[in-house]
């Protein structure tokens, strides 16, 4: 059994806990044990805090990394933003001795030291590279016959010189994981486009940020999908809360359910619906719920 520390971040535990619960259970079924990363904080959000003050960002992100170093475990994240922040910080601290010295001086004040002994992993690239599609197929008990719009999100694959996950304009590894659950990843226009939430844009210029996600929702709708699959709670929030804001501000309805990959995996492994929290989203689509019920043959 492999073991990782589970870095929760902010939005999964504090807005969409179904993602957290689904991750723990589904990875457990795949033989991956997740240990609490006790006392972890906000990653902190890279586009926001890194741009406000690089040393504060680097020190807080490095503190999170040292907590896992002290446990002797690699970190697992379920969020592209946390992944980006922690990977970038981990790489920078390993490569830049001057910055490492400066940040370690701060960390020494709270009894930690960055040593550069661990890796930061994202659930999607971890499953793709360490577990493999075949093993996931074998763990699926109910193939989810759904047409889905896959949203990779930006920071899972970019910047590519930090991520090393292949093509950033036409990647396949996440599609393969989706298809392992029995779902079909439907092509749609501008599939790799940003959801519009990152970099503090959702906070700074909400309306413009919503216009961006509206473009994506239009293209997804045109492709005729049952739901969105993402791998980032912030993209998830932008799609879910964003649809209700778009309805209010621009009088446009999409009603496309938003599902994190861990929750899709949970559906396909036959986990109880109330432990997956998909119904805790703001967007609840009865037609989708009926379809899920039908596919799962009454498994609640």
């Amino acid at each position: 059994m492999s073991k990782l520390s589970f870095f929760l971040g902010c939005i999964a535990p504090n807005r969409y806990p179904g993602i957290e619960a689904a991750t723990i259970t589904t990875l457990g079924k795949l033989g991956i044990e997740l240990e609490d990363l006790k006392g972890a904080s906000c990653c902190p959000a890279p586009g926001v805090f890194r741009s406000f003050d690089k040393i504060t960002w680097l020190a807080l992100a490095s503190r999170n990394v040292t907590l896992s170093e002290e446990m002797g475990l690699d970190i697992l994240t379920v969020c592209n933003g946390c992944f980006g922040s922690l990977v970038d910080a981990n790489n920078l601290m390993k490569e830049d001795s001057k910055l490492r010295e400066e940040v370690n001086k701060i960390l020494a004040e709270i009894g930690h030291e960055f040593k550069g002994t661990i890796k930061v992993r994202h659930i999607i690239e971890y499953l793709s590279q360490e577990v493999g599609v075949q093993k996931i197929k074998e763990a699926v008990t109910i193939p989810m016959d759904l047409n889905i719009a896959l949203h990779y999100g930006c920071h899972l694959v970019k910047p590519s010189n930090e991520r090393h996950l292949g093509s950033t304009e036409n990647p396949r590894f996440f599609d393969e994981l989706v298809e392992a659950t029995g779902a079909t990843s439907v092509d749609y226009e501008d599939k790799m486009a940003c959801c519009g939430a990152g970099g503090g844009a959702r906070t700074a210029v909400l309306d413009t940020s919503l216009q961006m996600v509206m473009n994506k929702l239009e293209n997804m709708k045109a492709a005729g999908v049952d739901c969105i699959i993402d791998a980032c709670p912030f993209c998830h929030l932008q799609f879910d809360v964003g649809q209700t804001e778009i309805k209010k501000k621009f009088d446009k309805s999409y009603d496309i359910p938003v599902v994190h990959y861990s929750q899709l995996l949970g559906l396909a492994m036959g986990l109880p619906l109330d432990e997956l929290g998909i119904d805790q989203n703001l967007i609840v689509n009865e037609e989708f719920n009926k379809k899920i019920e039908k596919i799962r043959g009454g498994v609640k």
Binding site: G47, C154, H155, K158, P159, M212
Partner: peptide, 10 residues
Amino acid sequence: YCTTCYKCQE
């Protein structure tokens, strides 16, 4: 306004 999507940088 930048969402830090990194498309330009790529």
